[in-house]
Nucleic acid binder design. Structure first.
Length: 218
DNA sequence: CACCAGGGTGGTT
DNA sequence: AACCACCATGGT
């Protein structure tokens, strides 16, 4: 299932190497928080503004004034809660002894510690594991659920943990799982809108189930 | 104008 | 466990 979908997505949208560009791993962590429930476009503006004032480091973020931080990240939306969460993230990284120190921990333990952070749920934790700590995990987001709900239709949708387990067992490597996530988003942004409109889409048999009656791969 | 975007939290039933 | 309101800006 995952290998087949991966092939078709890559066929249609091309390789997604170099997705999630950033100058540092810490910048990826910041981006993972800032992009929550907004577009990458808006999050990128906030990221640029942080870099312009040299605040894209754990040390600077931990000490910057909350009001100033709020103003800087305002374009990303939810700026009050996100400012608080960014400062807690920065303090966590510092107290842990830096990202290299965090990298030495077991994956399950690291994931649980990320989940303890305010504002870091399952998806953000997995994004950090995959794109910061090089761990082979599937990031399950709204696009992923929507695509596979349509794929399995009319059968009931798989749980997030079931999707993760299958994808991680099938695709295996961090690179493949990260690229798969990028492909799902690229596909979702073009074809799999909330209201299916996959006319030009080669995965139309999957996405257009409402017009086709049932989903199918063949 | 309404709706959506690469979630998460806290409260209620 | 399944809902709900809330957080807030910017594009279509």
């Amino acid at each position: 299932m995952f290998a087949d979908v991966f092939e078709r997505l890559r066929e249609q949208h091309g390789p997604q190497e170099g997705w999630w560009p950033a100058d540092s791993r810490f910048e990826v962590m910041v981006g993972a928080l800032l992009v929550q429930r907004t577009t990458w476009r808006n999050a990128a503006v906030a990221i640029e503004r942080l870099k312009q004032v040299r605040c894209m480091t754990a040390e600077r973020l931990a000490h910057i004034g909350t009001d100033e931080l709020r103003m800087l990240i305002k374009p990303a939306g939810f700026f009050r809660v996100k400012a608080t969460r960014l400062k807690k993230l920065a303090r966590f990284v510092i107290s842990a002894g830096g990202l290299d120190s965090l990298s030495g921990r077991q994956t399950v333990e690291l994931r649980n510690q990320l989940l303890e952070l305010e504002g870091v749920g399952p998806e953000t934790a997995d994004a950090m594991l995959g794109y910061v700590f090089d761990r082979p995990v599937l990031v399950v987001d709204a696009y992923t659920r929507r695509l596979f709900a349509r794929l399995y239709h009319p059968s009931p949708a798989l749980s997030d943990t079931a999707l993760k387990r299958d994808a991680e067992a099938t695709l295996g490597t961090t690179q493949a799982l990260n690229e798969f996530h990028a492909l799902v988003i690229a596909h979702g942004q073009r074809c799999c809108s909330p209201t299916p409109s996959c006319e030009p889409c080669s995965l139309r048999a999957i996405c257009g189930f409402e017009r086709e009656g049932q989903s199918r791969l063949a």
